[in-house]
Amino acid sequence: MQNAKDSFYMTLRTRLTEINPQRTILVRGTVRPGILVEEAEAPFSQFPSDVFVLRWLGLAIDMDLASTMTGEQCEVVYQTCGTQSFGGLDRGRALSAMDEELMTMIKPFYAPKLNYAATPPAAMLTQVFWDEPVFSPIVTQRDRLSRSATVLVYSYQEQGE
């Protein structure tokens, strides 16, 4: 299952760098694409703004198939206060831009499954695939707008996983 999670994240990260290479974040002294996995970073007191944060939540499995299928629920959380140059008045536009980036990142709805524990990452036999994101309503906290989108990520367990 970890390979599916890694593959989903790395796919979105690769696509984000093509869609908006300016969306970055400085993490532990390194500039990275602006998309993180919550469980792979130090705990946040508050989610960083203007980046996508992936949270892995629910898990469902179907063991009656020829290969066990897993469905992992991924919540993509993002928020923004707009830009300083506009005094935050562009926060609605900034959130819309992130909505559109996420919609673009998510397509096509599949990606090769790779084992990122290997160096270089090793291609596996099956693909990871997912449904359309289900977007939540915008949450407003003072000058901060946030939203989350939930995606069900499906994969098949391969031999040795």
Partner: peptide, 10 residues
């Protein structure tokens, strides 16, 4: 449907 709550999905 894989997800009964999302009839339009996979």
């Amino acid at each position: 449907p894989l997800n009964q709550k999302n009839q339009g999905g996979h």
